[in-house]
């Protein structure tokens, strides 16, 4: 009995994303065996790199019991800045720096309102998001913006040993984030706030500052994701679905990081890969847009219920 229950507990400790990933991989292998080669799978992975980078910020924020719904707005703004032609004469580096600055600034505003003003994170980031979207749509005035500088697209299409450059970049970023959380004091702070904010506060953890920094990093990650996203489509667009934000939350939860769980990078990382496969599996099975929404909703709900049950048994 004891051995069975400990086995059950060990099974619960694996992030659901790993299980889902294996299931999806087997499904794809049965449905389309010819897709199982590195070049094609690399292309699938490349499509979710923006999502993966947003998730790197989202997991920090969610682990410190907050949430960031403003990624869509930041991506839209950065995309507009690059493609509108306003900065057309600028060289590459200042453009990139400006975009990262935008992400930092939005993250800082989020962080200050959530951490210092103690406003509800959902409302703050939701409001910031609609302000940014409204602003970009007003500036763009309904017209689709122009082209993205060619360097971006060239960088996006680069491959190292059949692995696309954006995927390499994503893996490197996730590695840095993982090491940062594992080694730095900030990582310990996030961990302790995730476990119990009250005891973290009484143990002398600067809860406010940690939450602010988590939001700033999340904003920065959204800006980086925006750069990758923009270089992937080569032309400007005023339509980015809110599904990116929803998927980033879904992938984070699927990866085993829920409110008040220690931040962990590789679970959500696999969660994002799950989404890469999920899109492919659903497309090959002929599932339309409504079906995709329903499946995403179900995945978030089931993963969250799974964790709710687990926290109850603890």
């Amino acid at each position: 009995m004891t051995s069975r229950s400990s086995l059950f507990r060990a099974a619960l400790r694996i992030p659901p994303s790993c299980i889902v990933f294996v299931v999806l991989l087997v499904t794809l292998w049965v449905l389309r065996p010819n897709m199982m080669n590195p070049a094609i799978l690399g292309t699938f992975a490349r499509q979710v790199v923006p999502l993966g980078i947003v998730v790197l910020g989202q997991l920090l924020v969610i682990s410190s019991r907050s949430i960031d719904l403003s990624a869509g707005g930041i991506i839209l703004l950065v995309n507009y800045l690059i493609s509108s032609g306003l900065l057309y004469s600028w060289p590459l580096l200042p453009i990139v720096l400006l975009c990262l600055g935008v992400g930092l600034a939005v993250g800082l505003v989020n962080g200050l309102l959530v951490g210092k003003r103690r406003a509800s994170a959902v409302i703050v980031t939701l409001a910031i998001n609609i302000v940014l979207i409204g602003l970009v749509e007003y500036l763009a005035n309904g017209k689709p913006p122009g082209d993205v500088p060619a360097e971006f697209h060239a960088l996006y299409n680069l491959r190292f040993w059949t692995i696309p450059a954006p995927v390499m970049f994503w893996i490197a970023l996730a590695g840095i984030m993982s090491a940062f959380l594992g080694v730095s004091v900030f990582g310990r702070f996030v961990w302790s706030i995730g476990s119990n904010p009250t005891s973290a506060h009484f143990s002398g953890v600067p809860v406010e500052r940690t939450v602010v920094i988590a939001h700033v990093i999340s904003g920065l990650m959204s800006a980086v994701a925006a750069l990758v996203q923009t270089s992937s489509i080569a032309v400007g667009s005023v339509r980015f679905g809110p599904e990116l934000v929803m998927n980033s939350i879904a992938a984070t939860i699927l990866g085993g990081v829920v409110f008040g769980r220690p931040a962990e990078v590789w679970g959500p990382f696999v969660g994002v890969l799950c989404f890469a496969l999920l899109f492919v599996v659903m497309t090959t099975m002929g599932v339309q847009e409504p079906g995709k929404l329903i499946v995403q909703g179900l995945i978030i709900l089931l993963a969250a219920i799974f964790y709710g049950l687990r926290s109850k048994s603890n």
Partner: peptide, 25 residues
């Protein structure tokens, strides 16, 4: 579009005026 911006700004203002005990959600 500006109406959306105004709506968002009002929401932000109201929320910033509602301090709470807990940080986060």
């Amino acid at each position: 579009f500006i109406q959306t911006v105004v709506k968002g700004a009002i929401l932000l203002l109201v929320i910033a005026l509602q301090p709470r005990k807990n940080i986060g959600l």
